[in-house]
């Protein structure tokens, strides 16, 4: 399964990079999203995908064993990453909106002409 997920991540990166290299800003933003998702997956994979138990401590127990449940640490990291990604996404999109409103183009090669419309 690890091999499949690793290939999946590689494909996501390939698509993300391809989108990053486009001239359209929207596609560039899409590329950033794809790559950030793929990166989250890398972190997730590092915790292992052999176990699929929920990382909860049972209602009777005081401790949990890592034997059965998914590693909680990567999850915590990814959770932070997703939320921050949301913040970035909102900001980029607002920026993009303003940019288009000011310049009337979404071609990055026109970026030098921001001041004239």
């Amino acid at each position: 399964m690890e091999l499949v997920i690793a290939i999946f991540i590689g494909l996501l990166y390939a698509c993300g990079v391809y989108l990053l290299l486009r001239r359209s800003i929207v596609k560039l933003i899409l590329g950033v999203f794809v790559i950030s998702n793929a990166t989250n997956l890398i972190i997730f994979l590092s915790g292992g995908v052999t176990r699929s138990g929920v990382s909860f401590i049972g209602s009777e127990a005081e401790k949990a064993s890592l034997e059965t449940m998914t590693d909680p640490l990567p999850q915590a990291l990814i959770l932070t990453a997703i939320v921050i990604g949301l913040g970035i996404a909102a900001y980029i999109l607002a920026l993009k909106y303003k940019y288009f409103e000011t310049t009337g183009t979404h071609d990055l090669d026109q970026l030098s002409k921001t001041d004239q419309k």
Partner: peptide, 24 residues
């Protein structure tokens, strides 16, 4: 792996059963 520590102390120290939440 530091995860071991979280799994053991999440309830005893952090008083939460959802380990991810306690970490956060």
């Amino acid at each position: 792996p530091v995860s071991e520590f979280f799994a053991e102390n999440s309830f005893l120290e952090g008083h939460g059963r959802n380990i991810v939440n306690v970490i956060l």
